[in-house]
Design a protein around this nucleic acid. Structure first.
Lengths: 339, 339
DNA sequence: CCCCGGCCTGAAAGCGCTAACATTCAAAAA
DNA sequence: TTTTTGAATGTTAGCGCTTTCAGGCCGGGG
């Protein structure tokens, strides 16, 4: 297998009997080339199997067809949904996705932003509003549209799409209290380098305070993202807080882990304990009892973010720069008023 | 907000009092620059906030630090795990990930391959061994290492990493039969444009035939990837096949959908019906009863694929070109010998 | 009949880097 | 001392495209 010299635009041009600029036009602005010429060029492209070199194209035109996106992890299905929304808009628009995973570390996020900006993407999507100072500086001076996602509470570098994690949690606690729950625990996701998790905790705390409900320290636990951590958290909390009547988990995986654990231990949900989650993943509606949770616009975040980026790339202004897509509390059987 | 002219390497060079090639060397081969000079250059870079333009760098050096990957969908956690394995190797090696989703369409796959190859990635990862003829041609003539994943049965364009979907299903059926099951149904994933699904079906069929078990058409159903489809399939199959004693689903989501449906309907699993899945997603070990399934090296596929690509990018040959990472049948409580 | 303007095509000049070769200079070898 | 050597830096020439500006050709208006 020997390395063949790559086919360049000039080769195509020679075969078609035109200059390379005409080949370029056939590819980028076909309307500006006479039909006969265009066909001749397309045939030549086909004949030699020419694949345009967009690295050279990008250098010459000073723009790329790449959008860079950073998520904490692709393994969490909620971000996968957002990426799905992104690509659904980007691909038809002729844009490619350059993806990075920060692993919930602001330091790695900053490093990745540097690396990604070197590729001169046409736009950048990041998760959350909390970033290293260096990262903010880079994003501000990059000269490309930037959209921050999954949070709208705070100061955006450029644009933002998401919902209020604070209000969602606040509202859920109010709902639980309205259903008669008095002693409501909260299982929080790790808050370091995660403004969404912090907002959710803050929403829980505010609601508890506003409602005059007990604020004991044992009612809040931090847990990693896994079924197992949910199970363990609910066990500990039940042991430490005998009169616990509801557990609100910061995500559905924790909540479902807790739910399964209760079932294993013979704890009746919602009879003995109510459980609520956050995200409304597909599984939430499938478990028994169905999980009460907060439905959030995961897919739409990606789609709208992409739309905003495309709009700005095309030179059109975007308003509002901060887009709140809202949320919805979905009440299922896992939370009903106790006794 | 006015557009500032971007900082170029030459600007940095002027400030540091060197030529731009020295700046280039500080960035790419720091060992070749005297420490004093290097520091002066790094200070200048810092001072002006220079971000290298790797588009220009790639054009000049004729190589990029981008690896392109195509998966059917990022929404399915099994592919997310593979991508995770990929990035875990790529990022430390200084490579970026350009990601595309084909939506299980060979036509879209071919289109995306064209678009991605225009970006001149250093390597390409695709899912499965089945591709449009045009796609195969493109991959073969691209002059970059290509790795096909998730299947090792068939002819690879270049390299492949995965496991035998055929043998995994064959073995599971043998195991079920060994446990006393006689009437084993199979819920297949859509086979169009999906060689893995086809292999799984083929494995089931071969095993049934080899074991002399009933081969009725009602024992095989095709179902989309969702809990709901699993539920519906098990309902239909139970209605059409009264003596059904086991259902083997081509993925865990279908299996768990089926399991939940049985629970809703009061069908005892495994007392009345055994259920087995495929993939061993985290949920499989959490449901009650635990789901018998096939554990497959999802993460490792990504990691090994990346390793092979990196090795070839570095000019070192890779052997074996086809890497079978195997599988493992995990027996839990959802399948025990009936009666 | 000539000029103007619209349509199509082309020539020249980079885009911002790096490869390849050239040069410099001081220390080691002869 | 002279030559050799090698480390450090610089010069030149593109990488494969697109931008910008020109030019040729045609038909309609003056």
């Amino acid at each position: 297998m020997q390395k063949k010299p790559p086919v360049r635009m000039e080769d195509v041009a020679r075969i078609a009997g035109v200059s390379s600029i005409t080949v370029s036009r056939v590819l980028n602005q076909p309307g500006k080339v006479a039909e006969e010429t265009r066909e001749r060029v397309l045939n030549a492209i086909e004949a030699v199997g020419y694949v345009p070199n967009s690295v050279a194209g990008s250098l010459a035109s000073r723009r790329t067809s790449v959008i860079a996106a950073l998520v904490p992890t692709i393994t969490n299905s909620i971000f996968a949904d957002t990426i799905h929304g992104l690509t659904d808009v980007l691909t038809p628009a002729g844009y490619q996705l350059l993806l990075g995973a920060t692993g919930y570390s602001l330091e790695r996020e900053a490093q990745l932003i540097t690396a990604l900006l070197a590729q001169r993407p046409a736009g950048l999507l990041v998760t959350g509003l909390a970033h290293a100072e260096r990262a903010r500086t880079l994003m501000k001076s990059a000269g490309i549209p930037v959209v921050e996602t999954w949070n709208v509470q705070g100061e955006a570098v450029d644009m933002a799409v998401g919902f209020s994690n604070y209000r969602a949690c606040y509202d859920m606690v109010v709902r639980l209290a309205g259903n008669g729950h008095r002693c409501i625990g909260f299982v929080c996701a790790p808050t370091e380098a995660n403004d969404r998790a912090r907002e959710r905790l803050r929403g829980y705390r505010s609601a508890i305070r506003d409602l005059g409900l007990p604020e004991r320290a044992e009612l809040v636990r931090e847990a990693k993202f896994s079924f197992h951590a949910g199970a363990e958290s609910v066990n500990r909390m039940r042991a430490e807080v005998p009169d616990l009547d509801a557990v609100f988990c910061a995500n559905d995986i924790l909540a479902i882990g807790a739910l399964f654990e209760c079932q294993r231990r013979g704890v009746d949900v919602p009879g003995d304990l109510s459980i609520a989650g956050f995200d409304d993943v597909e599984l939430a509606s499938q478990v028994n009892p169905g999980l009460t949770t907060v439905r959030i616009p995961r897919y739409e975040i990606g789609r709208e973010a992409a739309r905003m980026l495309m709009q700005r790339v095309d030179g059109r202004p975007v308003s509002p720069g901060i887009l709140d897509l809202g949320f919805e509390i979905v009440e299922r059987q896992s939370t009903v008023r106790p006794g």
